[in-house]
Design a protein around this nucleic acid. Sequence first.
DNA 1: CCGCATGGTTACAACGTTGTACAGTGTGAG
DNA 2: CTCACACTGTACAACGTTGTAACCATGCGG
Lengths: 345, 345
Amino acid sequence: MAVTLHDVAALAGVSIKTVSNVINDYPHIRPATRVKVEQAIAELGYTPNLTARSLRSGRSGAIALAVPDLGLAYFAELAASVIAAAEASGLVVLVEQTGADPARERELLRSPRLKMTDGLLFSPLGLGQDDVDALDVGYPLVLLGERIFDGPVDHVTMQNVAAARAATEHLIASGRRRIAVIGVHEGEVIGSAGLRLRGYREALEAHGLAYDEALVGPSIAWHRESGARSMRELLARGAEFDAVFAMNDTLALGAMRALLEAGRRVPDDVAVIGFDNIDEAQYTVPSLSTIDPGREWIARTAVATLAERIERDGDAGQPRTLLADFEVVVRESAPAGGGVRAGRA
Amino acid sequence: MAVTLHDVAALAGVSIKTVSNVINDYPHIRPATRVKVEQAIAELGYTPNLTARSLRSGRSGAIALAVPDLGLAYFAELAASVIAAAEASGLVVLVEQTGADPARERELLRSPRLKMTDGLLFSPLGLGQDDVDALDVGYPLVLLGERIFDGPVDHVTMQNVAAARAATEHLIASGRRRIAVIGVHEGEVIGSAGLRLRGYREALEAHGLAYDEALVGPSIAWHRESGARSMRELLARGAEFDAVFAMNDTLALGAMRALLEAGRRVPDDVAVIGFDNIDEAQYTVPSLSTIDPGREWIARTAVATLAERIERDGDAGQPRTLLADFEVVVRESAPAGGGVRAGRA
DNA sequence: CCGCATGGTTACAACGTTGTACAGTGTGAG
DNA sequence: CTCACACTGTACAACGTTGTAACCATGCGG
């Protein structure tokens, strides 16, 4: 596997620079020379050493993607989309998991492990406005999906507030009045939990419904398990509700499970809507109504934005914030009002 | 960001090699010198250029992981485990998706994109025994999970045959006699579909049950959708069965969905068991009985095996095949025989 | 027939790091 | 007092690639 330009050059009887020129489609090469070199390349099975090329050029053709955990369906699907988009741009993706731990997230930003890559797509969960300086890293960085900072960085995000409001309004439009919410992070303002809660409250307010602490189920983790637990707690303390807005789909699935165990029918007794539109949502029983936050678009746009940053190197330009369109996906767990099924919202 | 050894050396008033020595814990350095250098490093915020180091040393500290699609829960969870295991070994993971396309899988093995990595963890779906030469690549390679070749390569795999047999026997032990199977790849012998079908047939045979073509649901894809479709087809052609062995969990979930739509109760009318033990399986309604194929162990072992191969370079040693322990996970969709819940099989 | 542009190729340096060889400076033993 | 040797540090080359500058033909206009 140690075939280098030298070997090819020796076999073809030219200098190594000429071989390099052939490989890089340098125009002024005599056809005969080109053929000789190409034959030598084929014969030896030469492939360029990307590490060396990368050292020389300062570009590796790799980007890093940092997500909390690939075990979470949303991030797995996001990663799948990012990798596909990156491949289409000739980039390769190095995946890191932060476990949503703020300390690890901060550490990651400074980690030399990234030095092999040209830039970072970062989906932070734990960082706060306080960490904004930590984002002033010396390499191209694009923040993904969940959180809005005033930092000096590009963002490609979903419309958390508006989408959460639309989800809640969908429940209201179908006649529900006592709408519980689960997955709340108490005191948080800036993260997706805070933003989605704001959307929820805006919807209530716009329709003259009171915000009732009794209907709020806090939960830091957004797993099925925590969704089930949160729902059981609400039920146990005798909260009365006819709908649930879950801050993501896995919470919603856990909640549905708990509701079923408690003998509540979905959607007859309690309508449930989630957020994320993970693949699974369309196959559960009942299928899950949810928000499609535009994952594909986010992935493509984020890769493109990062690629552009990499392209024009340090040469700044204002940081941009790009917002994905969202969509209310109506399924069985929270059907439309008069039994009518809506497609888009 | 262009802080190099030179800059540090200049500031500290030593040669760049001395700085390098400090960084690499070379023993013979005067404490005073070490302090000077460390201060300079801190002051400039120097971090080593991994690309250069990698070129010099021939090691990048990165491995590649190739899976069909991160959108598939099993592979997402596998990737999560692999990345975690790799991190524990100080390795970073580059993730590729092959889409289970044989041509892309072959191409990937030769791709120079991997040249940046020290080795490859490969979970092939499409390759066959014919492609065995393609596996004689010039770099460390470990095959993952699904398939058994006689190739010159390390394998870390699950016990497809034995586990599928155990799954089927679990259904038989609970009194089922007409057991359908879905996800079959007709004519396949060597892939996981072929192996799991073999386990299924062995179980039937061992208990004097006939193999009935009418109970076999072929399906190339192993998605929820294909599971649902497969099940609907079986129902449509009037097949009679009291249990289903689905070749993976997502197929099983799709099948459960189709059964429910058709008014069959799970597990009362039809017991369902899957394969993979994806996280989701424990939260569905009803929760899904399945095979836990030892994903965590596979990930850890595969990373360790690859790391070892990388460690001792070309210095071969026999290719090894490592088999993970499996476990029958009994849940609601296929409870144990007399209403008794078993824990381990 | 000279000078000059242009095509085709080459030598050299450089990207940032580390291994090898070596050069000082002490220190302790003979 | 000298020699061996360990300690501390340096210069240089090398990993494989590509940019820069320069070289040697050739051909053409003057």
